[in-house]
């Protein structure tokens, strides 16, 4: 077992150019820490799925290397593949087979001896036990997706890829899935999820990577990213609208919204001195009254949009 601090997955200079000439990945460097939940964020067509597919072996790379625990996965592909589980974006199953059989099939395919007790527990965890003898064709979309997760976990991987796990999924399944992901992390499974739902990354991830146009734009601890790039806003609903921001308030970064009914102060979330109390005192001095006060913190979504726009 390598030291805990070393990355479980190291990707360097990974590139992919499809035969059509489209460059899906243009030299990606990425390190995934052992035991973390890593969210790979990016708009559609950013290269998320291509990146995952190359690591999992379903797409050939054009260049670069991928190492698992420091060893190039091309050298011992079996060992790497056996440790990796993949839940693809699309539901793809043999619709004529049963839940039990398809999950058992996956376990065998990945080189593990049958373990009915483990499969039973897995199906129970995913609320699939009652459906174990049902054919895939009889299941709802949500149930099929649960089966896809069960298949990916059937061989007890320690690195799990979830490609857009909650796209088109109802609230129940999404909640179950998040609970399952946390449970897996507690067991020491490293999880990489791609998503374009920011809330998912915000809810789940330890670290966030933003990818667009086949390049990783940034990798950061989620909390640090929110601190660094996150802005806070103080919105005051004024008793009387203002035509313009009074010159006496030029020390603060203020703007007017909704035809002067709202005064908005935006400031860096990480600064100790927010300038907020001073602003309120000054407003009092100027006899500018307000009816309501609201503060908000920018979400990962705002940060993301800003980043992607900046790179475009």
């Amino acid at each position: 077992m390598p030291p805990v601090s070393s990355p479980i997955l190291s990707i360097s200079g990974l590139s992919k150019q499809y035969k059509s000439g489209h460059t899906a990945l243009g030299g990606v460097d990425l390190e995934i820490e052992r035991g973390e939940i890593f969210a790979l964020l990016g708009p559609n067509g950013a290269g998320k799925t291509t990146l995952i597919s190359i690591v999992c072996g379903t797409v050939n790379k054009s260049g670069g290397t991928i190492a698992m625990d420091g060893e190039d996965i091309a050298h011992n592909f079996r060992l790497a593949r056996q440790r990796i589980g993949l839940v693809p974006q699309e539901i793809a199953v043999d619709i004529f087979t049963t839940v039990w059989n398809t999950v058992s099939f996956s376990r065998g395919l990945f080189g593990k001896a049958p373990d009915p007790a483990y499969i039973e527990q897995l199906l129970r965890d995913l609320s699939l036990w009652e459906k174990r003898d049902a054919k895939m064709i009889e299941l709802s979309g949500g149930m099929k997706r649960r089966v896809m997760i069960a298949k990916a976990l059937s061989h007890e991987p320690d690195l799990l890829f979830l490609d857009e796990p909650t796209a088109g999924v109802d609230v129940n399944l999404r909640r179950d899935m998040w609970a399952l992901v946390r449970k897996l992390r507690e067991k020491g499974v490293t999880i990489i999820l791609t998503t374009h739902y920011i809330e998912e990354a915000e809810e789940m991830a330890d670290r966030v990577g933003v990818i667009d146009g086949g390049k990783v734009l940034l990798v950061e601890e989620k909390a640090a990213l929110m601190r660094k790039l996150g802005k806070r806003r103080l919105t005051l609903t004024l008793a009387e609208p203002l035509a313009q921001v009074p010159a006496a308030l030029s020390d603060w970064s203020l703007s007017l919204e909704e035809e002067g009914h709202k005064l908005v102060y935006s400031f860096d979330a990480e600064e100790d001195d927010t300038g907020m109390p001073a602003l309120l005192r000054r407003l009092d001095d100027l006899h500018i009254a307000f009816k309501d006060l609201d503060t908000s913190r920018s979400s990962l979504e705002d940060i993301f949009v800003e980043l992607v726009e900046k790179s475009a």
Partner: peptide, 18 residues
């Protein structure tokens, strides 16, 4: 052909199977 058609080929390709 069937796994190619249904998309389950991804599993075969990602398996530790030469």
């Amino acid at each position: 052909y069937f796994p190619k058609f249904t998309g389950t080929m991804f599993e075969i390709l990602s398996a530790p199977l030469n």
